[in-house]
């Protein structure tokens, strides 16, 4: 498996989509839907991050072991945030006032 060069077209297209997603984020914020706007902007951020990882970082051309590492990072992050929030949300009396 030799190093594969992404096409300029693919990189340009990805860059254009990233800027469009940024514009969509700002439009969602300007729409003023409160928590819904915030949730949508985070979902868009996840989509942007996925594009950067898959195209710019070349994950689409990489070996399974790279995907394994990526998945392990996501899993530990999910444990970190998930279990912390479960604790904060359910502990009685609350940890902090």
């Amino acid at each position: 498996m030799t190093q594969r060069a992404s096409s300029v077209r693919a990189l340009f297209l990805t860059y254009g989509v990233l800027l469009a997603l940024l514009a969509a984020t700002l439009a969602t914020w300007a729409a003023g839907l409160g928590t819904a706007s915030f949730a949508i902007s985070l979902a868009i951020a996840a989509a942007k991050a996925a594009l950067v990882v898959i195209v710019f970082m070349g994950a689409r051309h990489s070996r399974p072991v790279t995907w394994f590492l990526f998945a392990s990072g996501a899993l530990w992050l999910a444990i970190l945030i998930g279990l912390t929030m479960a604790d904060v949300a359910t502990r009685t009396p609350p940890i902090v006032r």
Binding site: T25, A31, S37, L42, V52, M57
Partner: peptide, 28 residues
């Protein structure tokens, strides 16, 4: 270039999440 590139893109990804978390948390 490839390995420094991975590091740079990672910094990019961190900011992609920091922007909504910090700046857009209030709604409008």
């Amino acid at each position: 270039v490839e390995v420094p590139g991975l590091y740079w893109h990672f910094i990019d990804v961190v900011w992609i999440f920091l922007f909504p978390l910090l700046y857009l948390a209030a709604g409008r």
